[in-house]
Lab assay of single mutants.
Amino acid sequence: MSGIALSRLAQERKAWRKDHPFGFVAVPTKNPDGTMNLMNWECAIPGKKGTPWEGGLFKLRMLFKDDYPSSPPKCKFEPPLFHPNVYPSGTVCLSILEEDKDWRPAITIKQILLGIQELLNEPNIQDPAQAEAYTIYCQNRVEYEKRVRAQAKKFAPS
């Protein structure tokens, strides 16, 4: 494992614990031996107030490669969400998460999670990743928002 990646992720964890947006979660997972795995984080993004996503808490896994922060983490909703920019596998399609697009090593975990929260309610229809959600979003916004509200209710924190 890269010392650069681990040191950056340790800084990220410290900064997150000191200050993070209300309702968001970002925690490194534990290895079988109980030690912390900084390369694999369990996160959760709350649906934004005043949107059909409100009330939901959407679980996301963030996986970092050894060359982080040169390369972005892979962000994957578990379980996958109904959304035009979420692949059926759950992987998020967002330009700041793509090395050859808008990724920059200075982007923080907090910025990534806030960017994904923004994307939930403002899909990028130029870059669809899920045919069904994309089609319904474009053709029947009322039905799309109904499905999103049902999903938010399903993923409401207990």
Rank of each mutant, 00 (worst) to 15 (best):
W41L: 04
S158A: 13
Q117P: 06
Q151S: 04
P28S: 05
F58L: 06
T35Y: 02
D67T: 10
K76T: 13
Q139H: 09
N31C: 10
Y137C: 04
Q126L: 10
L114K: 09
S7I: 06
I112R: 08
I109S: 04
H83Q: 04
F155Y: 11
Q130P: 00
I125T: 09
M39V: 13
S89A: 14
S71L: 05
A131L: 11
A15P: 01
L114Y: 11
Y68K: 00
S7G: 06
Q117L: 07
L120D: 00
P52N: 15
K154Q: 12
N124A: 05
D127S: 02
N121F: 03
L38R: 01
N37Y: 13
E122S: 07
T135S: 10
L81T: 04
I96V: 14
E122V: 13
I45F: 07
K48T: 09
K110V: 09
A150T: 11
Q126H: 09
N40D: 13
K76S: 15
M36V: 05
K146R: 13
T108A: 15
N37K: 11
A131R: 04
L38V: 09
Y137S: 04
N85D: 02
Y144S: 00
E42V: 12
N124K: 03
E122L: 09
R147N: 04
K146L: 08
A106T: 13
I45H: 00
I109L: 11
I4G: 06
M36I: 09
A150K: 13
I109V: 12
G115K: 00
P72C: 12
A106L: 10
S89P: 08
N140I: 01
N40S: 13
H83L: 04
K14T: 06
A150W: 08
K14R: 15
P80S: 06
E78V: 15
K65R: 15
C75N: 04
F82R: 00
G115E: 05
E122W: 06
A152D: 01
F82N: 01
N121S: 10
E98V: 05
V148L: 05
V92E: 01
E145V: 12
I107S: 14
P123K: 00
N40Y: 09
L120Q: 03
V142P: 14
L120P: 03
R149G: 04
Q151L: 06
K48E: 07
C138F: 08
R61G: 08
D66R: 02
P157H: 07
R61W: 06
E118Y: 09
P46S: 07
V92A: 09
I136V: 06
E143I: 06
N31D: 04
E145G: 04
G34C: 07
K49E: 14
A26P: 01
A10V: 11
L113A: 11
G90R: 03
L113V: 12
K110A: 04
P32T: 12
W41R: 01
L63F: 12
C138S: 12
Q126P: 02
E143Y: 09
I112M: 15
F77P: 03
I109N: 03
W103F: 11
E122Q: 12
E12G: 03
Q126C: 14
F77N: 00
L114T: 12
Q111P: 15
P105S: 11
A5T: 08
I112T: 15
L57S: 05
G23D: 01
K153E: 13
T108L: 15
W103R: 00
F82S: 02
L38H: 01
S7N: 15
Q126A: 10
A131V: 13
I116R: 03
K101E: 13
D67E: 13
I107F: 11
L97I: 15
E118P: 05
L113R: 00
I107L: 13
E132G: 12
A15V: 06
F77T: 07
E54G: 12
Y68C: 05
A152V: 04
K74S: 15
G55R: 05
E98K: 14
K76N: 15
V25L: 08
Y87C: 03
Q11R: 13
V27H: 12
W16F: 08
D66V: 05
Y134F: 07
K18V: 13
A15D: 15
Y134N: 04
E132V: 07
S2L: 02
H83R: 01
A156V: 07
G115V: 00
G55E: 12
A44T: 08
V142H: 12
